[in-house]
Amino acid sequence: MAKSKEIRVTINLECVNCAENSEKRCRGISRYTTQKNRRNTSMRLELKKFCRYCGGHTLHKEIKK
């Protein structure tokens, strides 16, 4: 019996500014966990989320687990 692929998958989003920026409020990298529909969104997801380390809304990109 073949293994079926799940349509909704859990992904991790990571702040792009945290890795590049050395002058931020605190040390760390902001990460969020969310789900996406694999059929509707086949490309990597990019969302603007709040980063507590940068102190504002920044771009968060999907990363590999």
Rank of each mutant, 00 (worst) to 15 (best):
M1P: 05
M1G: 15
M1L: 09
M1H: 11
A2S: 11
A2D: 14
A2I: 08
A2F: 08
K3T: 15
S4R: 02
S4A: 13
K5W: 01
E6M: 05
E6Q: 09
E6A: 07
E6R: 13
I7V: 10
I7Y: 03
I7W: 02
I7G: 03
I7M: 02
I7P: 00
R8I: 11
R8V: 07
R8Q: 07
R8K: 14
R8N: 12
V9T: 12
T10I: 09
T10V: 08
T10L: 04
T10R: 15
T10Y: 09
T10K: 14
T10H: 10
I11W: 02
I11L: 11
I11Y: 05
I11D: 05
I11H: 01
I11P: 07
N12S: 06
N12Q: 06
N12I: 06
L13F: 03
L13Q: 00
E14A: 10
E14D: 06
C15N: 03
C15A: 06
C15S: 11
C15P: 01
V16A: 02
V16L: 07
C18A: 04
C18Q: 00
A19Y: 12
E20L: 13
E20K: 13
N21G: 02
N21E: 15
N21I: 11
S22R: 08
S22A: 08
S22F: 06
E23K: 12
K24S: 05
K24Q: 15
K24W: 02
R25T: 14
C26G: 03
C26P: 01
R27P: 12
R27I: 06
R27H: 12
R27W: 05
G28I: 09
G28L: 11
G28H: 09
G28V: 13
G28Q: 10
I29Y: 07
I29H: 02
S30R: 10
R31T: 10
R31K: 12
R31V: 09
Y32Q: 03
T33R: 12
T33S: 11
Q35G: 04
Q35C: 05
Q35S: 13
N37T: 11
N37W: 00
N37M: 05
R38F: 01
R38K: 14
R39Y: 08
R39N: 15
R39I: 13
N40E: 12
T41Q: 13
T41I: 10
S42K: 14
M43I: 04
R44M: 03
R44Y: 05
R44D: 10
R44N: 14
L45N: 09
L45R: 15
L45T: 13
E46P: 03
E46H: 07
E46D: 06
L47K: 14
K48T: 14
K48H: 10
K49F: 09
F50K: 01
F50A: 05
C51L: 06
C51P: 03
C51V: 06
C51T: 12
R52N: 13
R52E: 10
R52K: 06
R52G: 12
R52M: 08
Y53R: 01
Y53V: 10
C54H: 01
C54Q: 01
G55E: 12
G55K: 05
G56H: 07
G56M: 10
H57W: 08
H57G: 01
H57P: 00
T58L: 03
T58N: 09
L59Q: 09
H60D: 05
H60W: 05
K61L: 03
K61R: 15
K61T: 12
K61A: 13
E62N: 01
E62K: 01
E62A: 01
K64Y: 01
K65I: 09
K65P: 07
K65Y: 10
K65A: 14
K65Q: 14
